[in-house]
Amino acid sequence: MSSVCVLTPMVVGSWPLIANAIAGTAASLGFTIAQHEREFEIGGANETERVEAEVANSEVVAETMGRAEKMTIERGGVRIEFGVDDRGRCTVCASGKGMAKRQLKAIADEVAGKVVQQFAYHKLMTELKQRKFRVLNESVGTDQAIQIQVQLDR
């Protein structure tokens, strides 16, 4: 090899691009996209805990004046709400009945990391193909890392 480089993705894009990454995350982690603002079932002995996190290095580029972008995914009683804060960062709020904050934080962090992975994957694949790179191999490892090998066609 001649060069090894470690990069941190900047998740900068319009809401539809980031929503695509959220949808990819939901599919790969077994979440389903929730229908608009449906409330959790009321009742049960346990209180609903909530924790906040954010998608690292994110910036949602506004295409309209409003900041009404929201998306919710669910899995086994855990609900993850994505939104955009006043500074344009993509926020992640995890909630679930009968779950400890620590558990919810771990889930929120896992989901936020996966959104970054999905965003980086789609952006790389789109841009590399435009730059005449050919995909030779693509796989997902046991550590959930996406492995891609590309070659420059010239």
Binding site: M1, T8, G113, Q117, D143, Q147, I148
Partner: peptide, 30 residues
């Protein structure tokens, strides 16, 4: 032909390895 191995971790961190070129061309690809 230059080849790049890309690994995107589950936390989003990206690691790239460039093969098959040296010097300035390697830097340009990176």
């Amino acid at each position: 032909k230059p080849t790049i191995d890309i690994s995107i971790g589950k936390d989003g961190k990206v690691k790239i390895k460039v093969h098959g070129v040296s010097g300035k061309e390697c830097l340009a690809l990176t």
